[in-house]
Simulated scan of single mutants.
Amino acid sequence: MTAEDDRRFIAHALGLARRGLGRVWPNPAVGCVLVKQGRIVGRGFTRPGGRPHAETVALAAAGDAARGATAYVTLEPCAHHGKTPPCAEALVGAGVARVVSALQDPDPRVAGRGHAILRAAGIDVTEGVLEDEARAMQRGFLSRVTQGRPMLTLKLATSLDGRIATASGESRWITGPEARARVHAMRAAHDAVLVGAGTARADDPSLTVRGLGMAHQPVRIVAARRLDLPVGGALGRTAREVPVWLLHGASAPDRARSDWVTAGARLIEVTETGAGLDPVSMLAALGAAGLTRVFCEGGGQLAAALLMAGIVDEIALFSAGLALGADGRAAVGPLGLDALADVPRYRLTECRTIGPDTLSLWTRD
């Protein structure tokens, strides 16, 4: 196999891995392709819920053809015994001749041990093929393992002048149907959707993925310090059908806690500050719960708090061709900044037209 072949098959494995985004937490979304004499004999990706792993799926598809094949995997094969034996040992047992991986797994239970098992068995191992691409796709898993919190994407849908609603609160719809369809696709690629209590009260959102013909739904999370949300709203009515998690503070009344638990919601108490819930504590709690990718859809106060805490990893900005004026509602609440040096800065990584609107993706360096 040439270096170009290695890149081509790892790229194929990355494409498979993306199918698992939003569905496999707390595990990473991994893809595996088995190639023998230039022909793909097996492939797989981590299945919903995190089991079975991509290598196990690919080996089962290949059967005896795996012997002497090259395995292309997007993340170092696991080396620890959990609910299933280590994938590194499965590859050894299947008799593969070579393993090409994109990225070393930073999980302390792996961290090079998977590659070491393979090499000890006499298997040729090549590391770091399309590593940057793999790192970008695995950003959520890597964040949870190394920082103890999920990757956070902040979605904003605004007018040209950065407003999300008129002065009276009307916001449906600023962006067009194509942009809204893209938002649903982005929700589906995340483990959870997060909004603030104000947005939940004002919009009574369902926060589900619709129009894509899929049964999978992300966890729906509301940051509500005092749990001051109507249990009879869309989230409360469906909490036993699609998970609802509520982040709250110690000041949340016992009656509200009881009502939401009865409705089927999961309550997670986090640290309170004078301004509300502590954003760092919120994300740490979600990481401890196993989430790797969270998609925040506002509102303005929550967006401001997350930005100022320095924990927004990516901004997905949908912009529509209209202006709502200074009396419209701002997409981001007050930041209390006096100097440009204190402003959180992001790097533009993608810009495209979505119907009549534009989508720009900004990444924190």
Rank of each mutant, 00 (worst) to 15 (best):
G232T: 05
A134W: 01
P356Y: 13
A66G: 05
P243A: 06
L246F: 04
R226P: 04
M186G: 08
H81Y: 15
W245L: 00
R8M: 07
L307H: 02
K83T: 08
M151K: 11
G169F: 13
A188M: 11
K155G: 00
W362K: 06
T358A: 06
L291Q: 05
S168N: 12
R347C: 06
G122P: 08
G44W: 07
V92T: 03
A90P: 04
D5W: 15
I268Y: 15
R43V: 02
E127T: 14
F9H: 15
H115M: 09
T238K: 11
M1N: 11
R172Q: 13
C296P: 12
T146Q: 14
L246A: 01
H190Q: 00
T238Q: 13
P150K: 00
L142F: 01
D191P: 00
L75K: 01
L337S: 01
G213Y: 14
L291S: 01
A11L: 12
E178N: 08
A224K: 05
V261P: 03
L227S: 07
L348S: 03
A289Q: 14
L267M: 05
E170A: 13
H216Q: 12
V222I: 04
G49P: 05
V73C: 03
V219N: 04
A136E: 15
P26E: 01
R39W: 11
R225K: 13
G355M: 07
D105F: 00
S206K: 15
H184A: 03
R329T: 02
A223R: 11
G336E: 12
Q37T: 10
A341I: 08
V57F: 02
R119S: 03
M1T: 09
A111N: 15
A3S: 14
P48V: 10
R119H: 01
M308I: 07
I221R: 01
T153A: 05
C78N: 13
V92C: 01
E269T: 13
L307S: 01
A215F: 10
R7D: 04
R172I: 11
D204K: 10
G264C: 08
M151D: 09
M308H: 14
P230K: 07
I354L: 11
G232A: 04
G148D: 05
G325Y: 13
G336M: 08
H248M: 09
W173D: 12
I221L: 00
A303H: 06
L291W: 09
C32M: 03
F9E: 09
I221P: 02
A303P: 06
P177G: 02
V183G: 07
